[in-house]
Structures are given as C-alpha cells and as structure tokens.
Design a protein around this nucleic acid. Sequence first.
DNA 1: CTGTTAGCGCATTCAC
DNA 2: GTGAATGCGCTAACAG
Lengths: 332, 332
Amino acid sequence: MKKTTIADVARYANVSNSTVSQYLNKRYEYMSTETRKKIEEAVEALQYRPNLMARSLKQKSTFTIGIIVANIIHDFSTKIINALEAEFDKKGFHMIVCNSADNPKKEREHVETLLEKQVDGLIVFPTGENQNLYIRLNQQKMPIVFIDRFIEDVAIPAVLLDNFSAMDMAVEQFQKQPLAIVTTSLALPITPRVERLEGFRQALRKRDLPIDERYIKNGDPSEIEEIFNELFALEQPPRGIIAANDRIAQELMVYIKKHNLHVPDDLQVIAVDDVPYAKFITPSITTLQQPILPMAQKSAALLLAKIKKEQLPHEPQLYRFTPILMERDSTI
Amino acid sequence: MKKTTIADVARYANVSNSTVSQYLNKRYEYMSTETRKKIEEAVEALQYRPNLMARSLKQKSTFTIGIIVANIIHDFSTKIINALEAEFDKKGFHMIVCNSADNPKKEREHVETLLEKQVDGLIVFPTGENQNLYIRLNQQKMPIVFIDRFIEDVAIPAVLLDNFSAMDMAVEQFQKQPLAIVTTSLALPITPRVERLEGFRQALRKRDLPIDERYIKNGDPSEIEEIFNELFALEQPPRGIIAANDRIAQELMVYIKKHNLHVPDDLQVIAVDDVPYAKFITPSITTLQQPILPMAQKSAALLLAKIKKEQLPHEPQLYRFTPILMERDSTI
DNA sequence: CTGTTAGCGCATTCAC
DNA sequence: GTGAATGCGCTAACAG
C-alpha cells in the first residue's frame, strides 16, 4: 500500500540511495555493471516508480506548463489546446488546462495557483485586465506567451492573427454594399474583437466606402439575434456580413435559416475561423481560416525557448499570422 | 530572483517557520492576533507564495487529476474535457490533459508519468488494451474512472452512453429500409463502436428486419468515402443511415452534398452526437445527443468520492446515460 | 500561543 | 565505484 521509494530499492539491491539515484538518471559511468544489474532487478521486482514531485522540488522544474484559455467555448480555443498538447507532448511536457471564462479574477487566481504548483511556463489568452500581474511576472522572468490577444505595455510575446489583413481580405471579397460586421461582446477590450472591428473600418476607408457605426455591432451570444434583427431592419439592410468568430457564425446561420435569407444573392457571408460545416452546408461558406498549427507551434517554441533561457536578444513582441482565405459559395 | 520561502517570511516576521505554516493553513487559533498581523505583513511585503509541490510532497495530495482522452479529435472528447474542467474547478482541482490518440502504448506511458507526478486520480477514455495495468492500479486503490468506454473484467466504474437504447431509438425513427450504420475503425475493440453496431443489430432483430452485414460498416476516416461508395453501389442502397459519431456524420454530410442525395426522401439520416450544425443545415439533422454535462458531473463525482475514500459498498460498474433524441427534418 | 525537530522522496557534493 | 550527509520547502507532532 505504501509507495515504494528509492530507499526501498537501495535496500533490496544492497546499495546506497545515491547509487540508485545515479542509476535512475542514467549516469551509468558511476557504477559497476554488476550493481547496475542488481538495481535494475530491484526496480523491476519492486515495481518502483520515481516520485517526480520530489525530484522537481530539488531540480526546480516540473515539465508541466499551465494553459489559461479565455473562453473554452470557442472553437479556436479547443483547436489551439489540441495543437499545443501535441507540441508539448513531443518535448515531454504536460499541460494543466484552465479556463478563465473571460473573468479577470479567475484568470488571476489560476495564474497564482499554477505558479504555486511550480509550472515551468504559462501560455495564456489574457482577458486584458491584469497588466500589473503580468508586468511583475515578466520582471521575475517567468516564461509566458500570450495567444490570440496581447496586453498593451507588457513585454510578453503574443501569437495572434493578423486581424487587419484578415478584414481587408474579407472586405475585398464582397461585391455589394452596405457591409456589416458582428462580433462578441466588447465589454472587455479583447484584442481580436477590437482589431477586427477596427480592421473593418480601415478596409472600408481604404476603399472610400462610408463607415456607418450602425453596421458595426457587438454583443453577448444571447443578444446576437436581436442584433441581426436591428441590422436587417435598417432602411438599407446589409448585403454582405462578416461573422467575426465561430460563435457569431453559428448564430448567423441560424438566423439565415429562420428568416429564409438567400445567400449569396441577398446576402454575402464571410466567417472568421474555418467552421467545420463551412464546406458542406448549402451554400458553402467562405471563411478566413486561422493557421492553428503554425500558431500553436510558434507559441510552444517561444515558450520552450524562454524556459531554456534561450532568450533572443531582440525578440519581437507580436507574431502575427496571416489567415487563409477559403473561398466558397457564400461570396460568389 | 530566488524564490522567497516560508523561512524568509518567518525571519521577516520574527517568528518560527511552523507558526508561519500554521498561518498559511489558516489555523489562527494557534497564535496571537499580533503575530498573525506580523505574518500577514511579511507575506505581503515579500510577495510570498507557498510552494504547493513541497506541500504536496508532505501531504500526499496534489489537487490535480490526470485526464487521458483516447482521441482529442472527436467533438465528444473536447466537450467532455470542457465540462470536466468546470466541475473540477469548482472543487479546486486542476486537470492535466493528455491524448493517447488511440495508441495503447502512449496511453500506458501517460498513465505512468501522471502517476509519477502524483496525480490524485485519473479519468480515462481507455483504448481497451491495457487490462493488466488497470487491474494493478485498481488493486493499489488508485482512483480511476473510465468514460465512454470500459474494459472487460476490470472493476473500474465507467460512465458511458446507453448505446443499445440509442440504436433502438435510432432504428425506431426510420420509415424505410434497408438501414445502414457506419462507424470509425474497429481495429481496436472500442466500446461505443462495438456496442453501437451490436445495438443496431439487436434493434433490427427485435423488429424482425433482416441483418445484412454489408450494411454494417467501419473504417478509418480516410476510408469513409469509399465505404459510402460501396454502400450506395449495392443493388439496394440504404434508405436510412446512422452516422455513429461526429466524424462519420461530417463525412456523410460531405458525401450527401457531393452526390446530391436527397434527404430525407431518398435517404434518412441520424447522427450520434449533437453536432453544432445539425439544427441550421438544410435539411436539419436528427441527432442522438449525449448528455455531456450529466456524464461529466457523474464522472467527476465518482472520482472525487474515490479520492476522498467515500467508497460506496456496492457501486455499480457501469453508469449508462440515455441519449436525448433531437428529432429534425432528416427523418421526417 | 510559539519554537524545535523530524521527516516527505529525491539529488548532489564530497569523502572513502 | 560507492555511501553518508545535507537540503529542496513545507507540515506535523511535541515540547515549552
């Protein structure tokens, strides 16, 4: 019942604890082939498993990293988690996954507990509200990488979509006006939401199209249907609409079906995030796919470099990834 | 740079380590309000954070549990992970999430490392291949709960769908014959796949319908298109088809669009797992929704009970959950 | 109420 | 080559 320890193995093999420790760390030069064999047998016989916590306590490294996603409900979050898991698994790291649910307090608490658990590094989708916390951690050289979002004036690298190019690419696809964009709530200044709306405005400006804030909307999922109602009650209903993320895209699909809107003739549609149904729904939906795998790989690589203290001298703060346009029937 | 420890706090506050430890564990009865205040200040001034690993080493409990999903690619897995995260978060537990990718060797390795990291318990989607491992762990009283699948002759509770009722409900919905079912690869005897095919056979038998194995198929995602080709090349193509999980459902949707099959007139469709697009695609798809939240709650509760040694005397081994039928246009 | 002591399981000098 | 001693940071008796 009681766990077998290194001492049990040592006793069984008739050697000292430290020799067993050497063996476990594969420093075989420090022992005879004979003792090595004895220890091998003892480990097998006793079904010995080292206690990595005790080891970590000594070595100050746990081979586990903390992930804090802002909202596990988004498709993008789960896809990133999956990709990160694959990356870190290759390097022998485990991930503790937490959800801040876009709640800065929960975010802070998770960060603290994760640090108390001595994780080697942190990957977080920041809510945007804990600047001081991150500034402090950064000073303490805690390895951190942001994904999807960043915090102004905090020198922590962030991996995210090039939201401005994305919106430019989107606007470029539409043939008719007016254009609208809808995203989830801006109650917090969340990077992709802010940037996508701003990118939308820039793309219109660049083309000398009028910017009318009545066509630039945001709201909680529960309010989205009402938002669409308002949009389509305007004297000039939108002829093209950008769903700024997968949640909005889904609401839009429901709305389109319910009100029997004709895509793309009456309304053209582009969704950010390559939702799985985009290609087989009728009509198929044009999307801006985030390059999940490269983004996850970059994040993992950045974090691992920091953990190994391979700090690049002048590392950029923002790593922006260009989306992949999947042209389909909703923008023909 | 060096982490501040309990000793630093003790020195700063002019008390002993153990008094600080008492304070940290909120055993305030054992100290004067004065010293309590002093320690409070010291903790604040030094920005002290306890090292939970050191604590765990002593107390033999880490408040982290290991999750091993068989295939993170399935919608069901990520939904369960999300629900579990919420449950365990409530109780102050963290989760280390691993993916075995349906590879028994990876599964075993993850189990071992997780144990070495001293997780308090394990929730796993077993591949089905490591009976001996689980039997051993169960003897050692390691708290474990299976989800979605179980292993024969291993006394570990499993939370899963009532696949037999599910198939009966599905068959009941169809109005025309012949009926077919397709699931992912049976290279490994994975519970839901085996049970859904068997449940399908039972449902046919019960209704005195012929059982023709040519209509009961399985294969890797890459082979699915070919499987549909075979199915629809039969002298009597299926008039109703069950997609036994979300991956198959997606392949089926693509196939239907590509070959312009008419649902539900030519072909009726039911999918297991309530895929997000089911309600807004045209025609909408009838699904058998797995009750994710109750399943996650049950699993978490079972595991936590085991961890707290509240072992029920005669706990059942299998907790089967009835699916929720979402009747939509694909089976009208 | 507070301090002393002795581990938790392992790694690492440093003598032998 | 091998072992005894020390400490990682914290908790838990047990004295005082």
